[in-house]
Computed example of a mutant assay.
Amino acid sequence: MSEDQAKEKKEAWYTLSGDVNSDMVHRVFEAVSHMTDEGIDVAHVLVQSNGGYVSDGLCLYNFLSNAPVEFVMYNGGAVASIAVILYLSGTRRYASETARFMVHKSHATASPGARPDALNIIVEGLRADDARTESILRKHIELAPEQWAIHQYSDLHLTARDAKIAGMISEIGDFAPPKGAHLSNI
């Protein structure tokens, strides 16, 4: 084996779609287990998700950020809500020209007739979730003050070009597995 071949990293191509929930967490755990068994060095992952549960997204972010595989993330359509946090675990990130991102504060629905102490617990949980997700956002992206202001009270939508300016993506580019590459759905 030549020195160049020894340095060549083993790459694989995946798609990950759906709600960010315990099922997705389980699927990702299983997929990364297979990746490590197969000696995958770099996993290219196309993410398509409108979000889901904050704790599951944070778990995936922490797990993928520290896995023994380098993750390259792609947005070919929509990555929204807590799925943005999952997406930010990639060491390199790309988005198609027509892709969109959306970030917002946490929200919940209280049971009808909920007592003030129960509402307080919900509010404190939402504040804790917002603090956790915002720290990750601020670690990876730089939004303009007016964008942070929108994020404070509403949904903030970003085009691929906006995401590039904010540092959310490395480049505008499509998920394009090479001819003959095996594509696996997580």
Rank of each mutant, 00 (worst) to 15 (best):
M1N: 07
Q5I: 00
K9N: 02
K9L: 10
E11T: 13
A12Q: 03
Y14P: 02
Y14V: 02
S17A: 13
D19K: 15
D19A: 04
V25E: 09
R27K: 13
V28T: 11
V28S: 09
F29R: 15
E30M: 13
S33E: 12
H34S: 15
M35A: 09
M35T: 07
M35P: 13
T36P: 10
D37K: 11
G39L: 14
D41G: 15
A43C: 11
H44G: 07
L46C: 13
V47A: 06
V47D: 09
Q48K: 10
Q48G: 12
S49C: 05
S49K: 11
S55P: 14
C59V: 13
N62S: 12
F63D: 01
L64N: 05
V69H: 10
M73Q: 11
N75S: 10
G76P: 05
A78C: 06
A78T: 07
V79R: 04
V79L: 06
S81R: 06
S81F: 11
S81K: 05
I82A: 05
I82Y: 14
A83I: 07
V84W: 11
L86M: 09
L86S: 04
L88Q: 05
A95E: 08
A95W: 03
F101V: 01
M102Y: 14
H104F: 02
S106R: 09
A108D: 15
T109Q: 10
G113A: 11
A114R: 13
E124T: 06
G125A: 11
R127V: 12
A131C: 08
R132V: 07
T133L: 12
I136T: 00
I136P: 03
L137I: 02
I141R: 00
L143I: 07
L143V: 07
A144S: 14
W148A: 05
Y153Q: 04
D155K: 14
D155T: 07
L156A: 04
T159A: 07
R161Q: 01
I165C: 05
A166F: 10
G173Y: 06
F175E: 01
A176D: 00
H182F: 01
H182E: 00
N185S: 04
